[in-house]
Amino acid sequence: MAHRPLIGVTAFLHRVDDTFDADICGVRTPEAVAGVAGCAPIVLPGRPEALPTGHLMELLDGLVLTGGRPNVHPRHYGEADDGRYGKFDEGRTAITLPLIRAMVAAGRPVFGICLGIQEMNVAFGGSLHPEIRDEPGRMNHRMPPGEKDPEVIFRRRHLVRFREGGAFARLLGTQETVTNSLHGQAIWRLGERVVAEGRAEDDTIEAISIAGASSFALGVQWHAEYAAGEDPVSRALFTAFGAAARAAQAARNG
């Protein structure tokens, strides 16, 4: 029996009880990778000295970039940190940016979620806005402050319209969906090869693809891992990612 494709799932740096640092990953993304995509998830700590890109490329059949509290440092897209960009996880960023480019170049699937879509954009030369709600005409995309109930936090809150004839419209068979919304930063200037596939009512970019990618290379600004087995859009995305990972595994094995 063939082994399941091995999928790297990114962790992020988090301080526990204001006492010690930990590389963490919520359970929902590995569960979606295993239960919906049918693959084997392996969590990647933000330790680039131990996980060089070449070594990861020898191991992985696909990559899922999770959401997380830290942000991409603005120096990675030519901006200065003016205090609006929040906390950073430079260990994670040192792994993700080169790995995204390498995986796409090798024809292996990449799926970016929330922070992950932002990392994909930056990896291809794009920029981020530090607080998208501060722009005229933009809505507040953040979760309700202080909320603890997951059903409220991940409630579907706004419409996303997909590019006609684009990657999401073809995959999902629909021109729009309603998503949850838990982010402050958002894509600002699109990177080279990054295609805006979906936008919220306020024109914020909510879905992307990578032009010319030979495998699944999609990102979403919402948390597609939440209820991934029940939500039709999330299920379709993780199912397609899993199929792409099996194809990449088969190609690697000859």
Score class of each variant (00 low, 15 high):
Y77A: 06
G146W: 06
G68M: 06
T179N: 14
I113H: 00
A34C: 10
S214T: 10
Q185Y: 04
I100C: 13
N253P: 01
G86M: 12
S234G: 14
G35M: 04
M1N: 13
G38K: 01
A34V: 03
E225R: 02
T179C: 15
I210M: 14
G83M: 04
I187T: 01
V72L: 15
F111V: 13
L190S: 06
F12N: 00
M57S: 04
R246V: 08
D149S: 11
V110H: 07
Y226Q: 06
C39N: 02
I113C: 02
A2P: 11
T179W: 14
G116R: 00
L97F: 12
E147K: 07
P130L: 05
E90Q: 11
G116N: 03
D89L: 00
M139V: 10
R15D: 01
V33T: 07
T66A: 13
W222T: 01
Q249D: 07
P30D: 10
H223Y: 05
A102R: 12
R193K: 14
L172D: 01
E147G: 10
A211W: 07
Q221I: 02
V195C: 09
P30C: 09
V104Y: 10
D202N: 11
A213E: 05
R155M: 08
T10F: 00
P144S: 08
G242E: 00
E58R: 11
G212T: 12
S209N: 07
I24S: 03
I187C: 00
R161V: 08
C39F: 02
E192V: 13
Y226R: 08
T177A: 12
S181L: 10
R101P: 10
R92L: 13
R246I: 02
A228R: 01
G68V: 07
H73M: 02
G91W: 03
P150I: 12
S214G: 13
L182D: 02
P30Y: 07
G91N: 03
Q118M: 07
F162S: 04
P109Q: 05
V233L: 04
R133H: 14
I187A: 02
I100V: 13
G116S: 14
F238Y: 11
R189W: 02
P30K: 08
Q221M: 15
T53E: 15
H76D: 09
P30W: 05
P232F: 01
G254V: 08
